[in-house]
């Protein structure tokens, strides 16, 4: 099983990189961009075949190390 983890800054925490990218897109005349958020994606292969157990384990990984929950949110997607 593969776990795809998307980590981004929480709403309300200023995303300076997103703002800089938005500004650069503006300067390239992509005028329909309303907001840009820059995050991080972690992809891992798991030997675990039980989806519920895998989700529990990856959630723990996010809480313990992969995300800093003071400033970041995470989303986990499992792909068989």
């Amino acid at each position: 099983m593969t776990a795809i983890i998307n980590i981004s800054l929480k709403n309300g925490v200023l995303d300076s990189q997103g703002k800089a990218v938005h500004h650069a897109l503006d300067s390239l005349h992509f005028e329909n961009v309303e907001d840009v958020r820059v995050g991080r994606q972690i992809v891992m292969k798991l030997s675990q075949t039980d989806e519920a157990k895998a989700l529990e384990e990856v959630t723990q990984m996010c809480e313990d190390l992969l995300a800093n929950t003071v400033i970041e949110d995470y989303e986990i997607e499992l792909v068989k």
């Binding site: 800054l9 925490v13 200023l14 300076s16 990189q17 800089a20 800093n68 003071v70 400033i71």
Partner: peptide
């Protein structure tokens, strides 16, 4: 120290990068 939660808060990328 913030990552170990021995101190509160977090240190983000500088505002102007």
């Amino acid at each position: 120290l913030t990552e170990t939660h021995m101190l509160p808060g977090a240190l983000k990328r500088n505002e102007h990068l």
